[in-house]
C-alpha cells in the first residue's frame, strides 16, 4: 500500500501489528513457560547493568532540591538531631522487641543465646534508588550496591527500624529487593511474648506503610495486640537471618466459622519512605559454626 501524501511514514499494515503483538506474546509465554528466572534473570541482569546507574542518577536529581530546602529553612541541624533521635528510638524499640524473645531463649537454652544474630551481622549500607509504581502491582526496590560489594541473591535486607526484605537478583553495581509487604513475600516470624512460630505474608498494599498477615503454626495461639514479632530465620540464614525485628501485632480477629485467627502485623519499617538500608552479607555466628562443621 503506497503511503498517502499527508502521512509520509504513517503506514498501518495490520500485518506489522500482528507481528509485534506476537513478539510480545512470545516473550511473555517464554518467560512464563520456562519457569521463574530462566529467561528473565539474565535479561534483567543485563538491563540492570545499564539502567541501574541511570536510575541512581534520576533518583539523585531530587538531592539538590532537598539541600536547598535545608538551606532556606535552616532545617539542617533539626534534621540531624531528628536522625540521631530516630536512630536511638529504633535501637530502643529494637531492644524492647527482643527483650521477650531473648528472655525466653535464655530460659530455654542458655547456650544458644550466643548464636542470636545480635552484633554478629556484617552489613553493607545501600541507598534505595528505584521503586516500582503501583501500576506494577508489586513492591520491589532497587538499591545501589551489587555483587561488587558482596551483595547477592537471597540476602537479608534490613534498616535501622527492622526487616525490609530480601535480595531477588543483583548486578555488579545494583540489586533488586523484594519488600516484605509484597503479596508474594513470605517470611517466618516468632512472636516475642511466647516464642510461637508463624508465617508473615505481605498484604500486597501498593502504597503507604503496608501491613503483614501472620499465620501461626499452632492455630490456637492468641497473641496480644502490641506483641512484637521477630524473624524466625531460615536455615543457614538464607534468605532471612534470625532475630531481626519485623513488626508489632496490630489487630487480632477471629471468626467462629473458621478455626483460624487473622493476625495483622504493622511492620516497624515504613515502606513508603525507604532510604538507607543494610544488606546482611555475613553473619559471624553462622560463619563460625559452618567453619567448625567442615
Amino acid at each position: 500500500m503506497p503511503p498517502s501524501p499527508r502521512e509520509p511514514d504513517g503506514r498501518r499494515s495490520p500485518r506489522v501489528l500482528v507481528l509485534l503483538l506476537l513478539t510480545a506474546l512470545a516473550v511473555l509465554s517464554l518467560d512464563a513457560g520456562l519457569g521463574p528466572g530462566a529467561v528473565s534473570d539474565p535479561v534483567r541482569r543485563a538491563a540492570g547493568t545499564v539502567l541501574g546507574p541511570a536510575e541512581g542518577g534520576a533518583s539523585g536529581l531530587l538531592a539538590p532540591v532537598r539541600a536547598i530546602g535545608d538551606l532556606t529553612t535552616g532545617r539542617g541541624t533539626l534534621r540531624e538531631r531528628n536522625a540521631a533521635l530516630e536512630a536511638e528510638n529504633a535501637r530502643l524499640r529494637d531492644q524492647l522487641g527482643r527483650a521477650d524473645v531473648d528472655r525466653n531463649r535464655l530460659a530455654e537454652y542458655d547456650g544458644l543465646a550466643a548464636s542470636t544474630s545480635d552484633g554478629g551481622l556484617q552489613t553493607v549500607q545501600a541507598r534505595v534508588v528505584g521503586l516500582g509504581g503501583a501500576q506494577s502491582f508489586s513492591r520491589t526496590a532497587t538499591i545501589d550496591k551489587g555483587t561488587d560489594d558482596g551483595v547477592g541473591r537471597d540476602m537479608t535486607v534490613l534498616s535501622a527500624d527492622g526487616l525490609v526484605g530480601r535480595v531477588l537478583r543483583a548486578t555488579a553495581s545494583h540489586a533488586t529487593v523484594l519488600l516484605l509487604v509484597d503479596k508474594g513475600s513470605t517470611v517466618g516470624g516468632r512472636l516475642g511474648s511466647d516464642n510461637e512460630l508463624g508465617f508473615l505474608r505481605g498484604d500486597g498494599s501498593l502504597a503507604g506503610a503496608g501491613r503483614l498477615t501472620l499465620t501461626t503454626v499452632d492455630s490456637q495461639v492468641a497473641p496480644d495486640v502490641g506483641d512484637s514479632v521477630v524473624s524466625w530465620g531460615s536455615p543457614g540464614a538464607v534468605p532471612y537471618v534470625a532475630g531481626v525485628p519485623v513488626g508489632r501485632v496490630e489487630k487480632v480477629s477471629s471468626s467462629p466459622r473458621q478455626q483460624t485467627r487473622s493476625i495483622t502485623v504493622a511492620p516497624y519499617v515504613d515502606f513508603s519512605s525507604l532510604d538507607v538500608v543494610g544488606v546482611v552479607v555475613g553473619n559471624a555466628a553462622t560463619t563460625t559454626s559452618q567453619a567448625q562443621g567442615e
Binding site: 528505584g130 516500582g132 508489586s138 545494583h174
Partner: peptide, 26 residues
C-alpha cells in the same frame, strides 16, 4: 501506527526488564 507500535514493543521490554521490575517479561 507502525512506528508507534514498534516503539511500544521496545519501550515495554525496557520497562519489563528495568530493575526493580519482577513481573513476567513482555
Amino acid at each position: 501506527p507502525e512506528s508507534g507500535a514498534a516503539t511500544g514493543l521496545v519501550a515495554g521490554l525496557l520497562l519489563d526488564a528495568a530493575p526493580p521490575a519482577d513481573h513476567t517479561l513482555g
